Simulated scan of single mutants.
Amino acid sequence: MQVSNVSGNDQDWQVRLEFSGGRVTTAWVMNAQQGKLRENDGIYTYTGGADLAPGASVRLMFHVERAETRPVACSVNGVTCSGL
């Protein structure tokens, strides 16, 4: 999934994902500083390792076991994901 900063300021970022019946085994960003993946009651949160500059984007990759690859719920900084 692509995470983009459409604001005019540097932004920290956090992605929350939930998958039906499965689990995320790993997550990483392409060509950027890595962040941290945490799990709490089946909800996975990836916190970016660096702020995104205005207009910048990163590609967040994740490996899911025993579930559809499309999450049942997704948000970035509290805003529902689009285009999944």
Rank of each mutant, 00 (worst) to 15 (best):
M1G: 06
M1V: 06
M1S: 06
Q2A: 11
Q2C: 05
Q2I: 13
Q2F: 12
V3F: 08
S4K: 15
S4F: 05
S7V: 10
G8N: 15
G8S: 11
G8V: 02
N9D: 14
D10G: 05
Q11M: 14
Q11G: 03
D12W: 11
D12V: 11
W13N: 08
Q14H: 06
V15Q: 07
V15S: 06
V15F: 10
L17S: 06
E18Y: 11
E18S: 10
E18Q: 12
E18N: 13
F19W: 02
F19E: 07
S20M: 10
G21A: 05
G21S: 12
G21T: 05
G22R: 09
G22L: 10
R23H: 04
V24G: 01
V24Q: 01
T26E: 11
T26D: 13
T26H: 10
T26L: 10
A27F: 07
A27V: 03
W28L: 14
M30E: 08
M30Q: 11
M30F: 04
N31W: 10
N31R: 14
A32P: 00
A32L: 00
Q34E: 12
Q34G: 03
Q34A: 08
Q34K: 03
Q34S: 02
G35P: 00
K36F: 05
K36P: 01
K36S: 15
L37C: 12
L37Y: 06
R38G: 05
R38W: 01
E39Y: 07
E39M: 09
N40Q: 11
D41K: 14
G42H: 09
G42W: 05
G42P: 13
I43S: 06
I43P: 01
Y44E: 04
T45G: 03
T45M: 11
T45H: 01
Y46R: 05
Y46L: 05
Y46D: 01
T47D: 00
T47M: 02
G49E: 03
G49I: 13
A50W: 04
L52S: 00
A53Y: 07
A53V: 10
A56V: 01
S57V: 08
S57M: 08
V58C: 02
V58Q: 07
V58M: 03
R59W: 01
L60M: 11
L60D: 00
M61F: 13
F62L: 11
H63E: 15
H63I: 13
V64G: 07
V64C: 12
V64H: 03
E65S: 07
R66A: 10
P71E: 04
V72A: 08
V72D: 07
V72C: 07
V72P: 09
A73E: 14
C74N: 12
S75C: 14
S75K: 07
S75N: 13
S75T: 12
N77Q: 13
N77H: 11
V79S: 11
T80H: 08
T80G: 09
T80E: 13
T80P: 10
C81P: 04
C81L: 01
C81E: 03
C81K: 00
C81G: 00
G83W: 02
L84T: 02
L84N: 04
L84K: 03
L84A: 04
